[in-house]
């Protein structure tokens, strides 16, 4: 069986299954990134807060989600999540097993992981804003909201964008680990095809190319966005 036939879209080929899987990976990553944006900004705010309690909470979140391997987080959510949800369900009188669909577990687990990366990006970007500009805004009597809108957010966005590009790629990568809980996304589809046809090298390469397409295209979008926010800045001689 040659590679072309294995990739065909008919009943005997893996083409359609792989294409569907790419869609699933993309969907999973986008949802995870959004979940992560919510948790990430909350945690960043908590970490920059003056209240020690909040800072501690932010720290704990980061230590937990950045410290435990992604594979373990996903397993813990998958097995633990079902137990918790079933227990809550029984409390309300439901019987039997209440499952969390793999997509939900995956989006939540990868989203929380992504949130821990995003929190650091937002915090780093905030720290990179020159103190003097904030002090200047304060000196000319800008209100808190105005300072936030006019000085902080535009600058944080500028500094955060390259980091966010990184997080997007990381989240895309992490989504591949969801294959272990049975969601058929690109990684799992590639493994299935490789095992079934015995063409390991070919299908790992094809899976890799699929990921490269996703990251390449999205990387280009991030580059355009970066160029837009950077255009008021002087270019460093090291950049081309």
């Amino acid at each position: 069986m040659d590679t072309l036939q294995m990739l065909s879209f008919g009943n005997t080929g893996w083409g359609l299954a792989l294409l569907k899987a790419i869609g699933m990976t993309l969907l999973l990553t986008v949802v995870s990134l959004l979940v992560g944006a919510v948790f990430g900004s909350l945690v960043a705010a908590a970490k920059l807060s003056r209240q020690p309690g909040l800072r501690w909470l932010g720290d704990s979140y980061l230590v937990l989600f950045r410290g435990v391997p992604e594979l373990l987080v996903i397993y813990l959510f998958y097995f633990g999540g079902a137990t918790v949800v079933s227990a809550v369900g029984h409390w309300f009188g439901a019987t039997g097993y209440i499952g969390m669909p793999p997509f939900l577990v995956g989006a939540l687990a990868v989203g929380l992981l992504s949130g821990s990366y995003q929190a650091e990006v937002y915090r780093g970007a905030f720290m990179a804003v020159p103190r003097g500009e904030l002090e200047a805004a304060l000196a000319i009597g800008m209100g808190k909201f105005m300072r936030f809108k006019r000085v902080l957010i535009p600058q944080v966005m500028r500094y955060a964008l390259p980091g966010l590009g990184n997080v997007w790629q990381m989240t895309l990568k992490d989504s591949a680990l969801i294959s272990v809980i049975g969601l058929v996304e690109l990684m799992r589809a590639s493994l299935m095809a490789a095992g079934s046809t015995r063409q390991y090298f070919a299908f790992y390469i094809i899976g890799g190319i699929g990921y490269l397409l996703l990251t390449g295209l999205s990387g280009r979008i991030f580059n355009i966005a970066e160029a837009r926010v950077q255009r008021t800045q002087r270019r460093s001689p090291l950049q081309h």
Partner: peptide, 23 residues
């Protein structure tokens, strides 16, 4: 940079271990 940042480590590892070992 594009290739190694653009693909998940898990697939790189499988490729290097099982994929290359085929040849």
């Amino acid at each position: 940079i594009m290739i190694f940042r653009g693909t998940p480590l898990i697939i790189q590892m499988y490729l290097i271990y099982y994929g290359l070992g085929q040849f």
